[in-house]
């Protein structure tokens, strides 16, 4: 059996990858994907830890949480993408770094 630590390291790295994506990628749609990665890292963590309770027992609590939070993440993406549509109309590009008229 694979020890728990490996799974934890995996979700932690997934989380960092999500942040890395948000911190470096220029494409706005990729940024939305970055948020999805972050949420999924958290979701995976829930699933992993639900099995940590007792051998042979999986907690339904965590699973119900994951089901709900997936839907929430979908909502966020939907709203994000509609805003991206308008950002594209105004700026004529999907490059997030061009969105820097507000500063200072």
């Amino acid at each position: 059996m694979i020890p728990l630590s490996y799974y934890l390291a995996f979700t932690a790295i997934l989380y960092i990858v999500g942040i890395y994506c948000l911190a470096t990628k220029r494409n706005m749609i990729r940024l939305v994907l970055g948020i999805e990665i972050l949420v999924n890292a958290a979701n995976l963590n829930f699933i992993i830890l639900s099995a940590n309770w007792k051998t042979g027992f999986v907690d339904p609590f965590a699973h119900s949480i994951v089901i709900i939070s997936t839907a929430l993440a979908g909502c966020i993406s939907a709203v994000a993408l509609t805003i991206v549509v308008y950002a594209y109309r105004h700026y004529g590009t999907l490059d997030a770094r061009k969105l820097r008229r507000l500063r200072g």
Partner: peptide
């Protein structure tokens, strides 16, 4: 200090990290 507000989203997320 106002220079810190670069307006670039990537930098903001870097600051987050």
């Amino acid at each position: 200090l106002r220079k810190l507000q670069t307006g670039i989203l990537n930098v903001n997320m870097l600051a987050f990290l």
